[in-house]
């Protein structure tokens, strides 16, 4: 009896879901499939692939997203391995130090990189005082990738590290006793056992980098147009709600597809267990 009554406690939440998640998503679908006069059309969905601007932004987003994910993986995996192998007394604290920058405000982290990279920025001042040349990567895709890697690296590190800590040293020792070399141990034991962490990390980096617009706006200086930037312009500058919704709908499909590709990730929610 009280089981039934207890279920009603989810009532406010269910109402909230319908009102603030499902209805809004339906609004996007509605605008994506109707013209400005309210009649059904596939024009705006098709425009995502036929319009030159949209097509280029989709290709660039996919490209930068993949590059960023790859760099994060290559950088984070050794960190997780080294941290796990160090057997420090206060290992938790060291891991905490690697996560700390993530708690800085998102916008402040981008601001810091803008400051470092800009033409008369910190890096160029230091280089100039050393009598070296200058780097000019601000307002290029490279700067955007750098900003993304900086922002999303912890998302890659955390799930891989968590998976790594679950590998028991006996298993490695057993493999060694049975004559496995370190390369074999790495590819046959460590990588497969951290596969779930790698996949979580890939999704947690790829999806936000595919869909971000603030990083590319600030570090790309308006020269790097990702899908997010085109959508933002449609809504905030042009008031082209139908075109923007069409592109948002396509972006949603991309997100769902990339998750399907990597399997339904993160079932145990390890990626969110930061606290």
């Amino acid at each position: 009896m009280y089981k039934l009554r207890q279920q009603f406690l989810a009532g406010p939440y269910l109402i909230w879901i319908v009102g603030f998640i499902l209805l809004p998503l339906l609004m996007i679908v509605y605008y994506a499939f109707t013209g400005s006069d309210g009649s059904f059309t596939l024009e705006y969905i098709a425009a995502a692939f036929t319009s030159e601007t949209n097509r280029r932004s989709i290709a660039l987003s996919l490209e930068l997203g993949l590059i960023c994910t790859l760099i994060c993986l290559v950088l984070a995996y050794p960190v997780a391995m080294i941290l796990n192998g160090m057997h420090l007394k206060n290992q938790g604290f060291v891991v905490f130090l690697f996560m700390l920058p993530m708690w800085m405000n998102f916008m402040l982290r981008i601001l810091a990189w803008k400051l470092l990279l800009s033409k008369n920025g910190v890096i160029n001042s230091v280089l100039a005082s050393l009598g070296l040349g200058r780097v000019s990567i601000i307002n290029t895709p490279a700067a955007v990738v750098l900003g993304m890697v900086y922002d999303f690296l912890p998302f890659m590190l955390l799930p891989i590290y968590n998976a790594m800590t679950r590998i028991r040293t006996d298993w490695i020792e057993a493999a060694k006793d049975l004559g496995a070399g370190s390369v074999t141990i790495f590819f046959r034991i460590i990588v497969p056992l951290t596969a779930s962490g790698i996949i979580s990390g890939i999704v947690m980096v790829f999806v936000p980098s595919l869909t971000s617009f603030a990083i590319s706006q600030v570090l790309g200086g308006g020269h790097v147009l990702l899908i997010g930037n085109v959508i933002e312009q449609n809504f905030m500058q042009g008031a082209q709600w139908n075109a923007g919704s069409g592109l948002s709908f396509v972006l949603m499909i991309f997100v769902i597809a990339s998750m399907a590709v990597f399997g339904m990730i993160d079932r145990d929610g390890e990626g969110t267990a930061i606290w």
Binding site: I17, I21, L23, P24, M27, E232, S245, S248, M252
Partner: peptide
């Protein structure tokens, strides 16, 4: 079954792109 449906709905804002979540709410 109810649990699966509820948790599926819970996952939507977690997995969906921030920009889409933001725009969808704005439209409403």
């Amino acid at each position: 079954r109810g649990q699966t449906i509820c948790l599926g709905a819970t996952n939507i804002p977690l997995l969906n792109a921030d920009i889409v979540t933001g725009i969808s709410m704005m439209l409403l």
